[in-house]
Design a protein around this nucleic acid. Structure first.
Lengths: 262, 262
DNA sequence: AATCTTAGTGTAGAATAAACACTTATAAGC
DNA sequence: GCTTATAAGTGTTTATTCTACACTAAGATT
């Protein structure tokens, strides 16, 4: 199939650029069809204070004035959908290079009373410590983190969007290693387990949890990549009056699919 | 969370309808932002002649005139995205009530040379026998089924869309029972297995395959729903010079998630 | 030295997955 | 009507994975 795609590309550039085509495109009327507005919204998750939080903004204007909403905005004509979503994300949190993926596109007529609005929703995972203090944006009078388990009433169909995002997040955590997006570079295994417990909202067995993690230990003769995803470091977290916990690191900070990771 | 959503709905209707809001909406300028075009495309799969096929249309006009493309069209302002996709699907195939789900939204600038086009892609599964003979639509000079393993060069970024759809289809088959969408009401277990083999493009073990299927047999005392998904019928397919195969039926033709179905 | 707290570790039994070959029922050919 | 050809149908053994479960270790505080 990869081969087919290549040949398609070659063929495309042959087909385009002909005289006929130029004439056709010159005549093409971009206003032939009435167009909906397109926005990107970003469901931004973080884990903080032993809780799964989502970033919401309080609307300054109608419709749904004063209500809380998922941050988002109109797509610029020249930027990709993902770039638009990243722009929103950075405006709100100040962080760059975070994990983001497209979630779903919501486009029912009537979901915005002003006009037909189609919203391409994304979800993002940010590490709590990287986020700068929140400030209100141009269209928001306030911005704040809310526990996903204790949400205010939301504007538009955003309760549905958030529900969808939470389902997807759990799903992703189950079979990929995106959890590391929610942790600093060095972390203890207990901290990693807490991420899973908070997101899934249920306790996990410590021994079973650790057994599933593909950890490269320090002594171990480094088996020619036996699928390790986490490596021990020689550092420890000395904190609290108890045995120190060894710090670990994700080997490559690239999200990878791992079947039945947890 | 469900509870929160309800309260959100109640609160919304309170917040809306105020005098302030009506004034605001009256002033709202729907042309404030330049808007992209939005289309829905539908990747329509079927299994026929021992092969996984996808429906493509040959473009009548520029851009990409004469090339093959995934069927689709502009979204009407008053219809939902899914309704638009279903309309396209029905125009092409004549079938209704088929399985369809949103796939992904493609919106890179430049993917259509005419203007910014954002495409919400869907994928659909149709039973081969229900599809009427294909006919070209208004913007297509031809329509045809192609093996996904032997595709022509495709217009726009449709090779990418199709690739994405195929990945999703395989994924769905693995952990849901959507396969029945590709079969008639009554089917043999070998036919069901063939669907999986064709989509995954690899042979499966007959005995292991059958063991995983939650089948309610005829004699069996009907265990108060032990998760049966398929039931035996007392009919057989008498065809070919060999032992007849028992016909089966999906118990409820509703798509359901079944972890590790195959 | 005793106490408190979290870190860290193994095993046995159950469930699931994978590999593998022969018998059965019909139609066709003789 | 006997033989042959073809796909249908069916169990067991082994390896792997999942689950439940409890004690020792290391440091801080008193």
């Amino acid at each position: 199939m990869a081969k087919k795609q290549e040949s398609a590309t070659v063929n495309n550039s042959e087909a385009r650029g002909s005289k006929d085509e130029h004439e056709f495109l010159a005549k093409y009327d971009v206003n032939k069809y009435e167009r909906p507005s397109v926005t990107t919204d970003v469901v931004i998750f973080t884990v903080r204070d032993n809780d799964l939080k989502v970033l919401l903004v309080q609307r300054r204007d109608y419709p749904y004035k004063d209500m809380w909403a998922i941050p988002g905005g109109f797509v610029n004509m020249s930027e990709s959908l993902e770039a638009g979503a990243r722009r929103e994300l950075e405006e709100e949190t100040g962080v760059q290079d975070v994990y983001m993926e497209q979630l779903y596109t919501f486009g029912d007529p009537g979901r915005d009373p002003r006009t037909r609005v189609i919203t391409v929703a994304y979800f993002a995972l940010v590490e709590a410590r990287q986020v700068r203090p929140l400030r209100a944006g141009s269209d928001a009078q306030d911005a704040n983190w809310f526990s996903v388990y204790d949400l205010p009433p939301l504007a538009f169909d955003h309760a549905k969007v958030l529900d969808y995002a939470l389902t997807r997040l759990r799903y992703k955590l189950e079979y990929t290693n995106v959890a590391f997006q929610l942790l600093p570079e060095l972390f203890t295994l207990t901290e990693l387990q807490r991420i899973y417990e908070i997101v899934f909202n249920r306790p996990l067995d410590k021994r079973n949890f650790r057994k599933k993690l593909p950890i490269r230990t320090l002594e171990q003769t480094p088996d020619p990549d036996k699928g390790y995803m986490i490596e021990e470091t020689d550092e420890f977290k000395m904190e609290g009056s108890h045995r120190p916990a060894r710090l670990h690191r994700f080997i490559d900070r690239v999200d990878r699919v791992v079947r039945g990771f947890i």
